[in-house]
């Protein structure tokens, strides 16, 4: 801390004469990026938040004269059982997906961190799941899980585990498990790649020293790998949470949020409100809530990151 403060003081006193000019050109250089971000990120964001405080139906969207109604849309959504159910399902879906995806990703990373023949091929194959467009993967899953001609039923039937076709996407519980599985299938390789990079940055000498001290494989994993991977793990968990929480396409293509509202997550609820039923105000309120949750998590993450750096 002391060292950092002293370098700060040095630059403050020894300010070069042309220091004022440098930031100006620097600002000019970043200006296009700032304008671009303001137009494509900031403006829609502010527009959406503004809309969430207005009574905006179809006509108001066209004429642009929606009345300000304060927190009415939020109150309406919070009282709406569909919204509460969507929020709960979103959280269940995200926590399940992130948890399983992280565990699978970590397992695969530890496995692929060892050298064995065919390692690179396997790593590339795993990444295909992540690279594959959602439209393709979601439809493949739909086909695998179909009750009449699905691959899963055929395989389970062939093994003698099933005697009657199961409609995986028609039962509420199995539909939720199915969309979690499809999500994990595509996000686990992403977690694997980041965790693998983290693993490779752990110095081999630590393991050697532990081995000499008589630590077994489990101790080496829990006492060295896990703590050394902590920063990377935090990043991976946050990224997984943010991307999973805003998932729309996988679930919409597989179940459209059904059966009933078993897989109607917050993004699907917001989409239906705004673009199916034309209630833009409450739709915008739902998306604002959708924005707040990952935002709160990110703030928590950056805070803990700063604390870690400080110590």
């Amino acid at each position: 801390m002391i060292a950092r403060r002293s370098t700060g003081a040095a630059t403050a006193t020894g300010r070069p004469p042309n220091r004022r000019r440098v930031p100006l050109t620097a600002y000019l250089f970043v200006l296009p990026a700032v304008v671009f971000l303001a137009a494509t990120v900031l403006y829609p964001l502010v527009f959406n938040i503004d809309l969430s405080f207005r009574d905006a139906g179809l006509r108001q969207i066209v004429t642009g004269d929606a009345d300000f109604v304060g927190l009415d849309n939020y109150a309406e959504e919070l009282a709406n059982p569909d919204f509460r159910s969507a929020l709960a399902i979103s959280l269940i879906y995200t926590v399940l997906s992130v948890g399983v995806s992280f565990a699978c990703g970590l397992g695969l990373a530890v496995f692929l961190n060892k050298t064995f023949p065919g390692r690179n091929l396997m790593r590339s194959l795993l990444l295909i799941a992540w690279v594959l467009p959602t439209v393709v993967s979601a439809n493949i899953w739909r086909w695998i899980l179909d009750g009449t001609y699905g691959l899963l039923n055929t395989v389970l039937g062939g093994l003698g585990l099933l005697d009657k076709g199961v409609f995986w996407l028609v039962e509420p519980t199995s539909a939720l498990i199915s969309v979690v599985t499809a999500t994990v299938w595509s996000t686990a390789p992403f977690a694997m790649i980041l965790l693998l990079a983290g693993l490779q940055s752990i110095p081999e000498t630590l393991y050697e020293a532990a081995r000499i001290d008589g630590a077994g494989p489990w101790q080496r994993f829990s006492r060295i790998t896990v703590p050394m991977l902590r920063p990377v793990s935090m990043t991976v968990l946050l990224l997984l949470f943010v991307t999973t929480f805003k998932t729309f396409d996988t679930i919409y293509l597989m179940t459209r949020g059904g059966p009933g509202d078993a897989t109607t997550i917050l993004p699907i609820h917001a989409y239906l409100e705004a673009f199916q039923f034309f209630r833009f105000g409450t739709g915008a309120a739902a998306t604002t809530v959708m924005l707040l949750i990952p935002l709160a998590l990110s703030l928590f993450y950056f805070r803990s990151l700063r604390r870690e750096e400080a110590s």
Binding site: D146, G258, P259
Partner: peptide
């Protein structure tokens, strides 16, 4: 009765 599939929901 199986005359219509449960799959119709999907």
């Amino acid at each position: 009765s199986g005359a219509m599939s449960k799959g119709i929901i999907g």
